[in-house]
Amino acid sequence: MKKWISAFVLCLLIPAVVVGGALLFSAKRYAWISLCVACLACLPVFLRLERGQSGARRLILIAAMTALSVLGRILFTPLPGFKPVTALVILTALTFGGEAGFLTGALSAVVSNFWFGQGPWTPFQMFSWGFMGLIAGWLSAPLKRSRLLLALCGALSGALYSLLMDVWTVLWADGGFRLSRYLAVLVTSAPFTLVYAASNVVFLLLFGKPITKILERMQTKYGL
Protein backbone atom coordinates (compact mmCIF):
# COMPACT_ATOMS: atom_id res chain seq x y z
CA MET A 1 0.00 0.00 0.00
CA LYS A 2 2.68 2.47 1.11
CA LYS A 3 4.87 1.60 -1.82
CA TRP A 4 1.93 2.09 -4.16
CA ILE A 5 1.29 5.55 -2.84
CA SER A 6 4.89 6.64 -3.26
CA ALA A 7 5.07 5.07 -6.70
CA PHE A 8 1.83 6.78 -7.67
CA VAL A 9 3.01 10.14 -6.47
CA LEU A 10 6.49 9.90 -7.94
CA CYS A 11 5.61 8.33 -11.28
CA LEU A 12 2.21 9.73 -12.07
CA LEU A 13 1.21 12.70 -10.03
CA ILE A 14 4.36 14.79 -10.45
CA PRO A 15 4.60 14.42 -14.22
CA ALA A 16 0.84 14.99 -14.41
CA VAL A 17 1.20 18.25 -12.54
CA VAL A 18 4.08 19.35 -14.74
CA VAL A 19 2.37 18.48 -18.00
CA GLY A 20 -1.07 19.59 -16.88
CA GLY A 21 0.28 22.81 -15.48
CA ALA A 22 2.19 23.57 -18.63
CA LEU A 23 -0.85 22.88 -20.82
CA LEU A 24 -3.42 24.62 -18.65
CA PHE A 25 -1.53 27.78 -17.90
CA SER A 26 0.24 28.15 -21.22
CA ALA A 27 3.62 27.35 -19.66
CA LYS A 28 3.92 30.66 -17.85
CA ARG A 29 3.54 29.54 -14.27
CA TYR A 30 6.75 27.64 -13.76
CA ALA A 31 7.19 29.00 -10.26
CA TRP A 32 3.81 27.77 -9.19
CA ILE A 33 4.20 24.40 -10.87
CA SER A 34 7.62 23.83 -9.39
CA LEU A 35 6.24 24.70 -5.97
CA CYS A 36 3.60 22.01 -6.34
CA VAL A 37 6.21 19.52 -7.50
CA ALA A 38 8.42 20.26 -4.50
CA CYS A 39 5.50 19.75 -2.13
CA LEU A 40 4.44 16.54 -3.85
CA ALA A 41 7.96 15.16 -3.79
CA CYS A 42 7.99 15.42 0.00
CA LEU A 43 4.66 13.64 0.27
CA PRO A 44 5.65 9.94 0.02
CA VAL A 45 8.10 10.06 2.92
CA PHE A 46 5.72 12.15 5.02
CA LEU A 47 2.93 9.69 4.35
CA ARG A 48 5.11 6.76 5.30
CA LEU A 49 5.89 8.35 8.63
CA GLU A 50 2.24 9.16 9.19
CA ARG A 51 1.02 5.66 8.42
CA GLY A 52 3.95 3.76 9.88
CA GLN A 53 4.25 2.47 13.42
CA SER A 54 7.26 4.55 14.37
CA GLY A 55 7.66 4.72 18.12
CA ALA A 56 8.30 7.67 20.37
CA ARG A 57 12.06 7.28 20.19
CA ARG A 58 12.25 7.49 16.43
CA LEU A 59 10.04 10.55 16.29
CA ILE A 60 12.03 12.28 18.96
CA LEU A 61 15.28 11.33 17.31
CA ILE A 62 14.17 13.08 14.13
CA ALA A 63 13.02 16.07 16.14
CA ALA A 64 16.34 16.25 17.96
CA MET A 65 18.41 15.91 14.79
CA THR A 66 16.27 18.60 13.16
CA ALA A 67 16.78 20.95 16.08
CA LEU A 68 20.51 20.20 16.01
CA SER A 69 20.90 21.02 12.34
CA VAL A 70 18.98 24.24 12.81
CA LEU A 71 21.19 24.97 15.80
CA GLY A 72 24.14 24.44 13.46
CA ARG A 73 22.66 26.89 11.00
CA ILE A 74 22.21 29.43 13.79
CA LEU A 75 25.62 28.83 15.42
CA PHE A 76 27.38 29.54 12.16
CA THR A 77 25.34 32.54 10.99
CA PRO A 78 28.37 34.82 11.46
CA LEU A 79 30.22 32.79 8.83
CA PRO A 80 28.31 33.20 5.57
CA GLY A 81 27.88 30.00 3.61
CA PHE A 82 29.18 27.81 6.40
CA LYS A 83 26.12 25.79 7.33
CA PRO A 84 26.44 22.30 8.73
CA VAL A 85 22.79 21.45 7.91
CA THR A 86 23.56 19.31 4.87
CA ALA A 87 26.40 17.56 6.64
CA LEU A 88 24.25 16.72 9.66
CA VAL A 89 21.46 15.52 7.39
CA ILE A 90 23.91 13.24 5.61
CA LEU A 91 25.27 11.87 8.88
CA THR A 92 21.75 11.23 10.17
CA ALA A 93 20.95 9.37 6.99
CA LEU A 94 24.10 7.25 7.25
CA THR A 95 23.19 5.92 10.69
CA PHE A 96 19.43 5.97 10.75
CA GLY A 97 18.54 5.50 7.08
CA GLY A 98 17.45 7.62 4.15
CA GLU A 99 13.98 8.30 5.43
CA ALA A 100 15.21 9.71 8.72
CA GLY A 101 17.65 11.79 6.67
CA PHE A 102 14.91 13.06 4.40
CA LEU A 103 12.68 14.02 7.32
CA THR A 104 15.52 15.70 9.17
CA GLY A 105 16.42 17.72 6.10
CA ALA A 106 12.87 18.66 5.19
CA LEU A 107 11.88 19.61 8.72
CA SER A 108 15.11 21.56 9.27
CA ALA A 109 14.01 23.80 6.42
CA VAL A 110 10.62 24.44 8.00
CA VAL A 111 11.97 24.98 11.50
CA SER A 112 14.88 27.19 10.53
CA ASN A 113 12.57 29.33 8.43
CA PHE A 114 10.57 30.15 11.53
CA TRP A 115 13.70 32.15 12.31
CA PHE A 116 14.90 33.16 8.89
CA GLY A 117 11.44 33.69 7.37
CA GLN A 118 8.98 31.39 5.60
CA GLY A 119 8.07 31.91 2.00
CA PRO A 120 7.50 30.12 -1.26
CA TRP A 121 11.12 29.00 -1.07
CA THR A 122 10.40 26.81 1.96
CA PRO A 123 9.12 23.80 -0.02
CA PHE A 124 12.20 24.01 -2.22
CA GLN A 125 14.54 23.97 0.71
CA MET A 126 12.55 21.14 2.22
CA PHE A 127 12.88 19.13 -0.90
CA SER A 128 16.55 19.94 -1.54
CA TRP A 129 17.74 19.10 1.96
CA GLY A 130 15.44 16.12 2.24
CA PHE A 131 16.55 14.76 -1.09
CA MET A 132 20.20 14.89 0.00
CA GLY A 133 19.35 12.87 3.07
CA LEU A 134 17.53 10.33 0.94
CA ILE A 135 20.47 9.92 -1.43
CA ALA A 136 22.95 9.63 1.43
CA GLY A 137 20.73 6.94 2.90
CA TRP A 138 20.76 4.99 -0.36
CA LEU A 139 24.53 5.24 -0.58
CA SER A 140 25.16 4.66 3.10
CA ALA A 141 27.22 1.48 2.68
CA PRO A 142 29.96 2.93 0.44
CA LEU A 143 29.85 6.29 2.21
CA LYS A 144 30.45 4.68 5.57
CA ARG A 145 33.40 2.78 4.21
CA SER A 146 35.37 5.63 2.71
CA ARG A 147 36.02 9.06 4.16
CA LEU A 148 37.03 10.29 0.74
CA LEU A 149 33.68 9.35 -0.75
CA LEU A 150 31.92 10.97 2.16
CA ALA A 151 33.81 14.21 1.61
CA LEU A 152 33.04 14.03 -2.10
CA CYS A 153 29.39 13.47 -1.31
CA GLY A 154 29.48 16.52 0.95
CA ALA A 155 31.00 18.68 -1.76
CA LEU A 156 28.56 17.45 -4.38
CA SER A 157 25.51 17.85 -2.22
CA GLY A 158 26.64 21.33 -1.26
CA ALA A 159 26.94 22.23 -4.91
CA LEU A 160 23.69 20.44 -5.75
CA TYR A 161 21.83 22.38 -3.10
CA SER A 162 23.03 25.64 -4.60
CA LEU A 163 22.18 24.50 -8.12
CA LEU A 164 18.67 23.48 -7.09
CA MET A 165 18.01 26.67 -5.19
CA ASP A 166 19.29 28.75 -8.11
CA VAL A 167 16.81 27.02 -10.41
CA TRP A 168 14.14 28.24 -8.07
CA THR A 169 15.54 31.77 -7.99
CA VAL A 170 15.47 31.94 -11.79
CA LEU A 171 12.02 30.42 -12.13
CA TRP A 172 10.70 32.85 -9.65
CA ALA A 173 12.43 36.06 -10.53
CA ASP A 174 12.12 35.44 -14.24
CA GLY A 175 8.72 33.88 -14.67
CA GLY A 176 10.38 31.21 -16.77
CA PHE A 177 13.60 29.33 -17.15
CA ARG A 178 16.22 31.06 -19.28
CA LEU A 179 19.64 29.47 -19.48
CA SER A 180 21.54 32.75 -19.77
CA ARG A 181 19.84 34.04 -16.64
CA TYR A 182 20.51 30.78 -14.81
CA LEU A 183 24.21 30.93 -15.71
CA ALA A 184 24.36 34.53 -14.53
CA VAL A 185 22.79 33.55 -11.20
CA LEU A 186 25.21 30.64 -10.92
CA VAL A 187 28.17 32.93 -11.43
CA THR A 188 26.98 35.44 -8.85
CA SER A 189 26.30 32.73 -6.29
CA ALA A 190 29.53 30.83 -7.09
CA PRO A 191 31.45 32.08 -4.03
CA PHE A 192 28.62 30.93 -1.76
CA THR A 193 28.42 27.60 -3.54
CA LEU A 194 32.15 27.12 -3.11
CA VAL A 195 32.15 28.01 0.58
CA TYR A 196 29.13 25.84 1.04
CA ALA A 197 30.68 22.82 -0.65
CA ALA A 198 34.01 23.37 1.08
CA SER A 199 32.40 23.76 4.47
CA ASN A 200 30.57 20.48 3.97
CA VAL A 201 33.86 18.78 3.18
CA VAL A 202 35.55 20.31 6.22
CA PHE A 203 32.69 19.39 8.45
CA LEU A 204 32.41 15.81 7.21
CA LEU A 205 36.17 15.21 7.30
CA LEU A 206 36.62 16.63 10.77
CA PHE A 207 33.43 15.51 12.41
CA GLY A 208 32.00 12.77 10.23
CA LYS A 209 33.63 10.07 12.27
CA PRO A 210 33.05 11.36 15.80
CA ILE A 211 29.44 12.23 15.13
CA THR A 212 28.77 8.89 13.44
CA LYS A 213 30.32 7.27 16.48
CA ILE A 214 28.03 9.22 18.78
CA LEU A 215 24.98 8.34 16.73
CA GLU A 216 25.94 4.67 16.60
CA ARG A 217 26.46 4.65 20.34
CA MET A 218 22.94 5.97 20.77
CA GLN A 219 21.71 3.37 18.34
CA THR A 220 23.18 0.52 20.38
CA LYS A 221 22.47 2.03 23.78
CA TYR A 222 18.80 2.67 23.10
CA GLY A 223 18.13 0.25 20.26
CA LEU A 224 16.90 2.86 17.80
Binding site: F46, L49, E50, S54, L59, I60, I62, A63, A64, T66, A67, V70, L103, L107, V110, V111, F114
Partner: peptide
Protein backbone atom coordinates in the same frame (compact mmCIF):
# COMPACT_ATOMS: atom_id res chain seq x y z
CA UNK B 1 -0.27 15.14 9.40
CA UNK B 2 -0.49 14.77 13.18
CA UNK B 3 2.76 12.87 13.65
CA UNK B 4 4.84 15.20 11.57
CA UNK B 5 3.33 18.14 13.36
CA UNK B 6 4.27 16.56 16.69
CA UNK B 7 7.85 16.15 15.47
CA UNK B 8 7.87 19.80 14.42
CA UNK B 9 6.48 20.88 17.75
CA UNK B 10 9.21 18.97 19.55
CA UNK B 11 11.91 20.39 17.32
CA UNK B 12 10.62 23.89 18.01
Amino acid sequence: TPKLSLVLSMAL
